[in-house]
Amino acid sequence: MNRTAIAIWMVVAGFSLQFFAYFRWAAPLGAPTSPAFSDPRIPYAPAAFIFGVMLVFLSAVVYELQGGGEGESDG
C-alpha cells in the first residue's frame, strides 16, 4: 500500500474511532437519568477515543516514515 493511502486510512480510522467512541461506545449523552449514563457502553471506550486521536496524528508519522526513503526507519 502506498504511504498516502495508509495515512488517509489511518486518519479515517482515527476519526471514525473517535466518532464511535464518543457517540456510540462511551457513556450516552443526554440527561443522565439512570445508571446507564455513568458507564461506557463498551468497556474502555474512552481509551478507544484517545487511541483514535493518536491514530490521526500518527498518520503523519507513518506518512513521513513509511519505508521507501533512502534509509531504514530504526525508530
Binding site: A27, L29, F37, S38, D39, Y44, A47, F49, I50, F57
Partner: peptide
C-alpha cells in the same frame, strides 16, 4: 479515566483532548 471517562463531562475535553490528544499531537 481510560475505563469510564464520560464525553458529557467537560473534563472529558480536558483529559482526553487537551492532555492526551493534544499532547500527543
Amino acid at each position: 479515566l481510560l475505563k469510564y471517562a464520560r464525553p458529557q463531562s467537560p473534563f472529558f475535553g480536558t483529559f482526553a483532548m487537551v492532555i492526551s490528544g493534544y499532547l500527543f499531537g
